[in-house]
């Protein structure tokens, strides 16, 4: 019976070949792998893989170029939007994206993020927000929630000392150069499908030269940094991250979404 079903003509889903066969360096259950695959799915569906150049950040996804089977550059910490600017200005007809975490994009790279968006660079920025520095061992990020514990806020983030978590996505949505700004997640099949649509819209905007950055935030888990099982971390994310970082479109076609 199973043999009858498992036949090439019955194939319903298989990982895209734009993901390499290299084993992902991410922890079990980490959303990075899902987001990588969605991006490569989209590039494949848009038949754009010969014209795509990606920029990997510093952080857990520093090795994104090992997994995404397109031309890739690895940028210095926080500088991916500047690197992408350099590529896109010289190759305006190519598809250029950055893939960045919250430490990279919202702390050390805040200036590059804001100015690339303010210039309206016609690029896609995928921003993975898990509220922590994963790669370096779970330190506090600009997006770490109030009272949330990390290795550099072992008693919880004290907002009197460290300030409130930075809602960089809402912040950049105010800039005229931001054309499409959305916040998504990938912890359930329904959310995965919505995120894929968002990523596809972002790349389609770039192809159509809509004039501005398409910015997709994905709120994700960090079970190692949060010290939970993968499934627990997804539940914790729903209960704690989503109230502070609500999902949904923030700006569509250059217009802020009013709720």
């Amino acid at each position: 019976m199973l043999k009858e079903i498992i036949q090439p003509e019955n194939l319903a889903y298989k990982k895209t070949e734009l993901m390499t066969d290299t084993v992902l360096s991410y922890c079990p259950g980490c959303g990075h792998g899902t987001i990588h695959r969605l991006m490569m799915d989209v590039i494949e569906e848009l038949d754009a893989w010969e014209d795509t150049i990606g920029v990997a950040p510093v952080g857990c996804s520093v090795l994104a170029y090992e997994f995404m089977n397109v031309d890739m550059q690895q940028a210095a910490h926080g500088r991916a939007p500047a690197v992408a600017t350099g590529i896109k200005r010289c190759w305006p007809d190519k598809l250029v994206f950055t893939y960045q975490g919250d430490g990279d994009l919202a702390a050390i790279g805040t200036a590059e993020t804001i100015h690339a968006i303010n210039r309206g660079e016609n690029i896609v920025i995928v921003f993975v927000n898990n509220g922590i520095y994963g790669m370096t061992g779970g330190q506090m990020a600009p997006t770490t929630l109030p009272n949330m514990k990390s290795s550099t806020s072992p008693y919880g983030r004290d907002v009197d000392m460290m300030g409130a978590p930075l809602k960089i996505t809402e912040l950049i949505s105010q800039l005229p150069g931001a054309y499409y700004v959305t916040r998504q997640a990938v912890h359930t099949p329904a959310h995965v499908r919505k995120t894929k649509k968002a990523i596809k819209k972002a790349f389609q905007n770039q192809i159509d030269k809509k004039g501005g950055v398409s910015f997709v935030e994905v709120v994700s888990n960090c079970n190692s940094g949060w010290k939970m099982t993968p499934v627990q971390s997804n539940e914790w994310m729903v209960d704690n991250m989503f109230p502070f970082y609500p999902l949904g479109d923030i700006k569509v076609d250059g217009e802020l979404v009013t709720k």
Partner: peptide, 25 residues
């Protein structure tokens, strides 16, 4: 529970490591 599978692909698309291939007939 192999008999119960309906080939919906949910498992495959949430799998962070892309290790699941789905068939449907």
């Amino acid at each position: 529970d192999a008999d119960a599978c309906i080939g919906c692909t949910n498992c495959a698309i949430v799998c962070p490591d892309g290790v699941i291939t789905v068939y449907k007939k």
